Simulated scan of single mutants.
Amino acid sequence: MSFSCSTSKERSLAKRRLLDRHNETIKLLENGDHSGAMTGLSDIVSAWRNLVRQDLLCDPEAANTVQTTPMTTKSVDPFMTTKSQFLSQSHSTNDCDDESFYLYETCIRFPCDFDPNYYESSLVSCVIVFNLALAHQLAAHGKKSDTLGVSPTRHLLVRAFHLYDLCFKLSCTSQSLQRSVLYRLAVANNLGVLCLTLRSNSISVNYFEYVLTTLMVMTTHGSQGKLMKRHKAALEGFFANVIRFRICGDKAAPAA
């Protein structure tokens, strides 16, 4: 069966429609429908991958040409929001179970004027996959009332781990994501909490150490002043997790 290429404009419109669909789908997650969000976001990941593949097939020079084009963004951070009411966990360091740790559970949306080029495909993938990982983690933790009553399962947590891990690796290696500091902090933080739930404290320590090191660099060099002011609540949550983990040690694990 022959493959017929769509025009660049048609592919651009298809991408915009998919990003709008993504923004609508994460409303399910925000309303506690974890199952619906997981299904919808999984479909969107596949659809986005197909659109990127079409770019490669229909415009093989896109990857080379776009690198000479000024970038509109090299970070997921401008898409992220932090509100104090999302700090659902206490910042007290007295509790050592995983439920007392702060989880960054704010979905990431695409701005309505965001028109990604091929070079920014990794950025789009990171946003969608992060929300998909969050849907799995929230479903497992049961942090919000789920219409299907999803109970905590190891399968959901392991799936969330692999999705977050993909996000972290992409954000560290992709040139188009080189300034996604808050994004990497959120992913590392959620991975640390997730590993506690899986009773993998030896792995959690690596992620919390990354969080601590990054926060120290930000504070010492003062290069992220705007980010620190805008996302103060989240950064405080990340730091509280590091302190709690250091205090609790081996006790930082979910109750049996």
Rank of each mutant, 00 (worst) to 15 (best):
K229P: 09
A233T: 07
K232N: 12
Q224E: 14
G222W: 00
H221W: 00
E236D: 14
K229G: 13
A233R: 04
F245E: 09
V242A: 03
K232R: 15
T219R: 13
F239W: 02
A240T: 08
R246E: 10
R244P: 05
G225T: 09
F238D: 02
L227D: 05
T219P: 08
K232V: 15
A234Q: 13
G237T: 03
K226A: 10
I247V: 11
F245N: 12
A233N: 04
V242Y: 01
A233W: 04
R244L: 00
S223N: 15
I247H: 10
F245Q: 06
E236H: 13
I247T: 10
I247M: 09
M218F: 03
R246F: 08
G222A: 04
M218V: 12
A240S: 11
G222E: 01
M218K: 05
H221Q: 10
L235A: 05
L227M: 08
K229M: 12
E236P: 11
K232M: 14
M228E: 07
F239Q: 06
F238I: 03
R244K: 04
V242K: 02
K229S: 14
T219H: 08
E236K: 15
R244H: 00
T219Q: 13
R244Q: 03
G237W: 00
F245D: 09
I243T: 15
T220Y: 15
L235V: 05
N241S: 06
M228H: 01
T219V: 13
M228A: 12
K229D: 11
R230I: 05
R244I: 00
G225Y: 06
A234W: 14
G225K: 11
G237Y: 00
M218H: 10
L227W: 00
K232P: 04
I243E: 07
E236W: 07
K226G: 07
M228Y: 03
H221C: 08
T219S: 10
S223Y: 06
R230D: 06
L227R: 05
Q224P: 05
T220M: 13
M218W: 04
G225M: 11
I243V: 15
